[in-house]
Write a protein that binds this DNA or RNA. Sequence first.
DNA 1: TTAGGTGCAAAACCTTTGCCATCCC
DNA 2: GGGATGGCAAAGGTTTTGCACCTAA
Lengths: 125, 125
Amino acid sequence: MIRKSKQKEAIFKVLKGATSHPTAEWVYEQVRQEIPNISLGTVYRGLKLLKRNGEILELGFAGTQSRFDGKAENHYHFRCLKCNHIFDVEGPVDKKINERLAQKIGFTVFEHRLEFHGLCKDCQP
Amino acid sequence: MIRKSKQKEAIFKVLKGATSHPTAEWVYEQVRQEIPNISLGTVYRGLKLLKRNGEILELGFAGTQSRFDGKAENHYHFRCLKCNHIFDVEGPVDKKINERLAQKIGFTVFEHRLEFHGLCKDCQP
DNA sequence: TTAGGTGCAAAACCTTTGCCATCCC
DNA sequence: GGGATGGCAAAGGTTTTGCACCTAA
């Protein structure tokens, strides 16, 4: 069972109030202003709990290894959350959404990456 | 200028022939069968060169730090390749594509992540 | 000849974990 | 009391780098 603590609450508060997408290190620095002797390990543990609870998102898959793909053209992927295999998703890449976004926000958009998450055929529950 | 070498060729060949999406470690093991005394560092350097040359893709953003997001609901992101800032992309998340993919390949699809890459307003060339 | 590449090992970096004291329920 | 938590520091895993020696152009 997950128990409340001022550390976890502080971590959550910092994350909620952030407009950036902070790293664990940055969260640590912020929370330290309120709880000066909190440790980085606690921040990581707190973030993991909050993530598991569905209260925050973790972007990307840092901490896991990089995967490489011999195909250079953009294509989409499916990652099995159980066996961690990555499958290519067939089908056309929609290049128009880059342009659409560029027009909307005025940034230069080179590409996009789309990754599906779920359970592959061998890992069905 | 980039010079040819049997190491880089072997790395590229392994990656081209792989149906999986290998890790650097796996590539290393494979290439070692051909060049037994190749080092892991060389594999990393070779992969980086191939990536920079646009000949292969790197999946995910491992090696960089995790970023966290106080918003729990799925939404899309834009990552500036120069300043490395991450921006939220407004607009609806298309949940139907999960279903469509699930029907097509018979996997269970929980979610998808979409990330745009480019240059933000402050980093325009 | 010489800038780029390689092997090796050490360093760097991010994240997780073990241990023990502490705090709630 | 006893399981959950936290601080600290050490360990772990992946990736990068320094250095001296090669090698392709």
